[in-house]
Simulated assay, not measured.
Amino acid sequence: MLDRPVRALLAGPLDRVAAVLDRPGLTPDRLTVAGLVLGLGSAVTSAAQLWPVALVLWLVSRLADGLDGPLARRRGPRDAGAGGFLDITCDFVVYGSTVVGVAVGATAGHGEPWWPFLAVLLAYYVNGTAFLAFSSIAERSGRTIDDGRSLSFLGGLAEGTETIAVHALWLVVPWVAADVAVVWAAVVAVSSLQRVVAGYRALS
């Protein structure tokens, strides 16, 4: 829901940072992998209940994820297929692993129940299936949505901006992480339904 205005707001600052990082030894794919490693570090430190460290690693991970695209565009026209594939795969790994990390840390340290986090993972699974299936079929049928990214993204109530905010929130208040997860799972489920309906209509 917030991705479009946030992307417009951050485009200039991210481009300027990408200009500083534009050095021969640093490639967009390396930035993507750095985001993956940092995200996995956030998951591990969440499980260990090192919440402030996990929060910092999470935010820096998402910053790296936001910079690989601007850096790639500075390098000139190229086939974005491999980079886009790597990016979305790393995103899914990071999102899933950080949910598990928070679940482990919150249940062990604060007695939070497991099932809300399982609900989030299920909602992520359905949501990811819907937009990836749409992107693949839209590409073959010539009905792509071009917003500057390598995949055709269907908008929804829960997008990347909201995901970053919610994952940061339960690192700040891990003692109510399960309550946050219940609400978030419901939001992602509604977003999944939106994408299924919108995707079906767009491809009909």
Rank of each mutant, 00 (worst) to 15 (best):
S136Y: 15
P5Q: 03
D179C: 11
L154N: 03
A133P: 06
F117L: 07
S191M: 07
V20T: 12
R73D: 02
P70Y: 00
L151T: 14
F131G: 11
S150G: 13
D179I: 13
S150T: 15
S204Q: 14
I164P: 06
G199T: 08
R195A: 06
L122A: 14
G84A: 08
A54S: 04
I137R: 13
R7E: 15
T129L: 15
D15S: 13
Q194S: 09
R195V: 06
R16Q: 13
G83N: 09
S150C: 07
E162W: 08
G156P: 08
A165I: 13
P116R: 02
W170S: 04
G83L: 09
G81N: 05
V173N: 07
P77K: 14
D79N: 11
L157M: 12
G105M: 10
V188G: 11
A8W: 04
G76Q: 06
I145D: 02
L86M: 11
A119G: 04
R201G: 05
A48V: 02
L9R: 14
D3F: 06
G109R: 01
P116A: 02
P24A: 03
V197A: 10
A165C: 10
W58P: 00
H167E: 12
Y124R: 12
P113D: 05
A18Q: 10
A11I: 07
W184R: 10
R201W: 11
R62A: 00
V172F: 02
A34Y: 00
V187I: 15
W114E: 02
N127P: 09
I137T: 13
S192H: 10
D65Y: 01
L157S: 09
A48R: 05
V187T: 07
G142D: 04
W58E: 00
V100G: 05
T27S: 14
S204H: 15
G84H: 07
L203P: 09
P174V: 03
H110S: 07
E162L: 09
